[in-house]
Design a protein around this nucleic acid. Structure first.
Lengths: 156, 156
DNA sequence: GTTGAAAGACCTAGTGA
DNA sequence: TCACTAGGTCTTTCAAC
């Protein structure tokens, strides 16, 4: 097994479990890993304190909350000064439709993950919000047809 | 405010809060929304039962668990029969490095989100796992330089 | 749908081994 | 690391509005 600096096998197992289901009680985890509740409690406290666990969130069913369309949009800017990049980032993260924004290597500068109700709503976002930002050379959009796998858990 | 079938303003506010921080107690939520604890408890029970809340997970700091490199890889297959698509999906989701797999519209078939330790590990995954799957015409990989925004919360 | 109250489960910190 | 303890907090249920 790949080891991670500062973590032993018990820590790894705890992280694996909590990545899948953070509602597990210390009692349940202690039973699964055959350790005492006090041990599990202390481990989790340390994992949070040291920043291994960032936060705990609820994941929603996007089809039930009217966000049925996910787009990945590749954005190319017409300049790569620190200021141009910074300004784009500052503005694009303000849009609630933008769930993720990554600066990327390769043939475009930013990759955005955008959630909207439908194609009409995406079109509106595109024309009235995204495309109005300065210094954009091109935006290329790809749409999710189906989710085959959708994990927030990292392989451990 | 955009309304969602079956949810009132209180439900929406609860979902907003839990998407950001699922460790909020019913007590804290009831205080924020000026409702009784029992009401909040009943609403959350219903939201889970009806599938609005899929699950609750811990999000880890990927730099601390040795998954510093995130790649987005665009895969194009050399055939689009139902069987070819299905076989690719069946195999690719088995790789633990693949966190997300989407079938897409446009100039490629699948978009993969891949987490590895570093470029060496990605290379190994690419050569020994991904590229060995049948019916692949091309794989184009893009790497994350920096995360400007990284949300799991949908806009509500 | 909402409420307050009551009982039970769990968390958390402490001790000593 | 563990077992045990005890106090405090939260969850969960329920009768009543």
């Amino acid at each position: 097994m790949m080891t991670i600096t500062g973590l032993d096998a018990t820590d790894i197992e705890i992280l694996k479990l909590l990545q899948k289901d953070a509602l597990l009680t210390n009692k349940e985890i202690s039973f699964k890993l055959r350790k005492s509740i006090a041990t599990i409690h202390e481990r989790i406290r340390r994992l949070k304190e040291q920043g291994y666990i960032n936060r705990v969130v609820a994941l929603l069913d996007r089809t039930k909350i009217d966000k049925s369309l996910i787009a990945f949009s590749q954005v190319l800017l017409n300049g790569h000064t620190a200021n141009t990049l910074y300004q784009f980032e500052q503005e694009v993260v303000k849009f609630p439709e933008v769930m993720e924004c990554f600066q990327m290597t390769g043939t475009f500068d930013f990759l955005l993950r955008i959630a909207t109700r439908d194609m009409d709503a995406y079109h509106h976002f595109y024309r009235n919000k995204l495309a109005t930002l300065p210094n954009i050379t091109s935006i290329q959009s790809f749409f999710v047809l189906s989710e085959t796998k959708s994990d927030t858990a990292y392989p451990l």
